[in-house]
Design a protein around this nucleic acid. Sequence first.
DNA 1: ACCTGAACACCGTTCAAGT
DNA 2: ACCTGAACACCGTTCAAGT
Lengths: 228, 228
Amino acid sequence: MTPPRDALSHDRVLQAALALADAHGLDALSMRRLGAELGVEAMSLYRHVPNKEALLDAMVDAIVRSWIDAGDAASTDWRDRLGAIMHRAHATMLARPWSVELITVRPRVGEGRLRYAEAVTTALLEAGFTPQLAHHGLHIVDGTIMGFTAQQARRPTAVALGDRVQALADGSLAHEYPGISRTIREHHDHDEEYALMVDLVIEGLARLRDGEAPRRTGLGANYALAIS
Amino acid sequence: MTPPRDALSHDRVLQAALALADAHGLDALSMRRLGAELGVEAMSLYRHVPNKEALLDAMVDAIVRSWIDAGDAASTDWRDRLGAIMHRAHATMLARPWSVELITVRPRVGEGRLRYAEAVTTALLEAGFTPQLAHHGLHIVDGTIMGFTAQQARRPTAVALGDRVQALADGSLAHEYPGISRTIREHHDHDEEYALMVDLVIEGLARLRDGEAPRRTGLGANYALAIS
DNA sequence: ACCTGAACACCGTTCAAGT
DNA sequence: ACCTGAACACCGTTCAAGT
């Protein structure tokens, strides 16, 4: 148990945490185990990281930072700029499925997240969006990235676990769920489907910029909030 | 310590868990505390629920089930049917912020989730979508609901915690982040913004159905996956 | 049949103590 | 200055024991 044992540092702790989550998932990431992985007692980590929450925030920020690329701003087409970011985000999250829940849910805003928000916002402003619309646009892009990716990250496990999902696939629930029984076996490729949604959203943003408000969807008479 | 002490049941445990999360957040929901809330030892709960995971899944399913309403199918306009579901989902999740991370991330598919998927899929099929497109449509609707809501649920806390977010708002980071410094103070209402995204997505789906493929976004030369 | 008490194998984090 | 050991206040879950 005598590895080189270089001095600990915030970055070494962060990298080890990412590696541990990559190798064994988020549940395996305990301060005790992370310490062990670094050849150190858990308590030593607290010299470099205030607490576990802060470590998780740092992990999120490191990943979100990788969504943007210095080259993005070079592209003159705002659609391509947004598309590149959205696809990069999707790919990095699916490559690290454990990261999805962290990124989607943690509220703390770090530098990486700010830079990503800045890149998206700037692309929109330079494309002629009003500040108001650019603000909405950022949220729409952000929501699309998170929601669609979370949904795809959820799927494989759902199928694996799926008692009923399996039954749906072989049609034995066609009586109760005729709709999904008909569609569930449609072939689809995650990346292609995401590309479709990205294009749909970007097209919608372009129309908003050009002043074409989408048709207003009526909420219907029975739009009521049902809590417990 | 002698409340009526009706016999425990799966449903009583579930309702108490929802109430506990509503009152004190998800972190407060431990089997021990939940037992205490029901006037019972934690271990008694295991007679009605296999484990905590299953309890969380049941909570998710109870909430998702409330997204659909028997009256939805009565509406002949598929846009209104989808819109009603999407708005109901958004409202119920924002009313229970702790539920967002559970619903967005947990893969297990229960009956509530199936009924919701069935309602969305049927609305699309009846509106003339091909099974293939209806399948994509469900995922697009699902991603929109989850992502946008998660993003809005994240925001208030972000602002509250925000060291840098605060600095952005008063303009002192305008040099480093010119784009967001310009847009961050744009007024926006959560519900209105969500309605905008819902309309945008439904409009996009309508165009897909009508065979108008959205313009393909080029990914650019620098679309590369960056891991660690 | 239903509930309990003690126990097991974990957590994150504190703090005084070691080098 | 940097790391540690023991301890604190928790977890989810098991299992034999009680009524």
